[in-house]
Write a protein that binds this DNA or RNA. Structure first.
Lengths: 340, 340
DNA sequence: AGCTAAATGAGGTGCGCACCTCAGATAACT
DNA sequence: AGTTATCTGAGGTGCGCACCTCATTTAGCT
């Protein structure tokens, strides 16, 4: 039989109340006593029964995903996966909700986060650009006892709080390698398109992409990144311009998160056919484009995995447990027509 | 507040005992009464609290992975992931163990499975070739109330019991597409190597591979599948022979599950360098070969995902629940050096 | 020593359910 | 009608833990 808190109390030579105090981090226990209990935990290999603990807590777990208000298909995928998880996990006493924060107005976003109370939220997964206001809001939430984790868009390199998403530099490198190998040994240039080069993910992808192409494929030249700012008209214009200015474009790398508009405009401008094209994130648009033959590959991160991983990590933090690193590493998936 | 069994009993106008009988499929309830309760479940949206249920069951869940006795690196990966899951899930009252079955002797394997009793096992995930004996053993286990699910190696097309693993035909097609695109427009032939063409997975991969190459790449010719039977010496011989007979080999597809020996022998025979090579499953060997530049791509299925997915499905079967289809689909991953 | 504040113990309650027993009610027979 | 088999109800117990109260002990102070 696995040891229970009762066994633990015996082993440590303290009462159940003290064990409870130590286990749940309540105040009013001497350092010495804490150590006694922790030693006993080690010694008898005690592991709290999470099933019983969750039941006794009355309140299950409630997690919130703070997502940007602006977004397109990939964001919708994430939201769908959250809803799916929520309904599937009611029986496990875990709730997952979405709140939207304004990514244009960091102050408003931060205020929004400040409204969350530890009373009704156990943890927050946040997808937001890295601004001082957001960083501050996160810090204060943690002080209030709410667990946090950045999602998809990294918040500085504070390794200690973790991060759920792919290594964007490696993702860019992957795109670069595929681009070069698919093009073969022809000579020419490659177009790179993204929403904004301000975002850290864009920067990192570009670094990875260039790293491969410049170092290993002298036959290819990567043109300066074109920014769409998510604006359809602008996207159309810069695509037209690029194609007029550079007659030797062999490939296009849609580096941004949302490829729907660039794909549409590219299709209209006739710049896609007969070129090697790679985009990010599987969505209805990119999936269709793969099937059409308009896209040669999609670099993807599984939104379902993102969501579940974020929740597992948040929960582990709540319960002061470690997570399975192997399970939480988000894969950089390469999708082609055949393995969709 | 979520409805409890008490609310359900009220709503259905029956006692708690009857609700319990219906919910847990015990005998001695009239059809009519069962329907009354089920209707009430629908009506009030009752969902059993699995946390409480698991706790009350006393015994958590115990799942067994029946794996072949023979195997190499990929099998070890799976075993490691099972052990990892087991230790991480003790707190959730879920156990996962491994038993080995002899894949050469189906009778012995079947006998081994027959020893499992519903008393101490809730479900079995099985990785075994498709033989009448195994199929029979599975059937009898289900009759005894043990849930079953095939793993990696499919057991005929009995859709109803599910399957945890990749679509091997699509995996072969993925390999075919990458092979062709990496080779470019040179003319020549492609070598295909596997353990045995008897196994269903080998067959399907080959079908997928040929499907792509034959239909879309007239510049390439796929040679007949070479069988290694897992024998190192034989592997070396057939590789030497092939390379002597065919001077125009541009690519090699290591189609089998375990690539370690073929890679070693191929390296020794000097047949790998300057050819496009693709293998299956990420293992220490294939990982190293990717880093060496000996392999151009690896088609992979995540063993951790396989294990956890099998367990989630088995558990859902035990609890008579549905699973999240999106979560349980095993991805055909494409690994190159950059997204390892 | 005398006081206060801090630390610990003893014990109880309930979470939602599975599982059990036994008595009473109802239906299905001869 | 009486007998039997089948169904249903009432009630209790315990899973392992969180959370609570109140009494008692111990340490820290002047």
């Amino acid at each position: 039989m696995r040891p229970t808190i009762k066994d633990l109390a015996n082993a440590a030579g303290v009462s159940l109340a003290t064990v409870d105090r130590v286990l749940n981090g309540r105040s009013g226990v001497r350092e010495k006593t804490v150590k006694t209990v922790n030693d006993a935990i080690e010694r008898i290999g005690f592991q709290r029964n999470q099933v019983a603990a969750t039941l006794a807590r009355q309140r299950g777990y409630r997690f919130v995903f703070a997502l940007p208000r602006s977004g397109d298909e990939f964001l919708m995928e994430i939201i769908d996966r959250i809803a799916e998880f929520d309904s599937a996990s009611r029986a496990e006493m875990i709730e997952a909700d979405v709140i939207r924060i304004d990514d244009q107005d960091p102050h408003e976003a931060a205020r929004n986060l400040s409204n969350l109370s530890a009373e009704d939220v156990d943890g927050v997964a946040i997808m937001a650009p890295e601004t001082p206001q957001i960083r501050d809001a996160l810090l204060r939430m943690r002080e209030r006892g709410i667990q946090t984790i950045p999602l998809v868009a990294d918040q500085q390199d504070d390794g200690e709080h973790g991060f759920v998403g792919i290594d964007n530099r490696a993702a860019g490198a992957t795109a670069g390698r595929l681009m070069a190998r698919f093009i073969g040994n022809k000579e020419g240039s490659v177009l790179v398109l993204t929403e904004t080069t301000q975002a850290r993910d864009s920067l990192e992808r570009r670094l990875g992409f260039d790293g491969i192409i410049n170092a290993e494929y002298p036959n290819l030249k990567v043109l300066p990144t074109l920014e769409t700012y998510g604006d359809p008209d602008r996207t159309e214009n810069i695509l037209h311009n690029a194609i007029r200015t550079h007659s030797d474009i062999l490939g296009i790398y849609f580096m941004g998160v949302e490829a729907r508009i660039p794909l549409e405009k590219g299709r209209r401008a006739g710049v896609i056919r007969d070129r090697v094209t790679i985009a990010h994130e599987r969505t209805p648009s990119t999936e269709l484009a793969l099937k059409n033959g308009e896209l040669d590959a999609v670099i993807h991160q599984d939104p379902g995995h993102l969501v579940r991983s974020a929740i597992r990590i948040l929960r582990a933090k709540c319960e002061n447990r470690a997570t399975l690193a192997s399970q939480e590493r988000i894969r950089i998936e390469v999708l082609i027509l055949e393995n969709l």
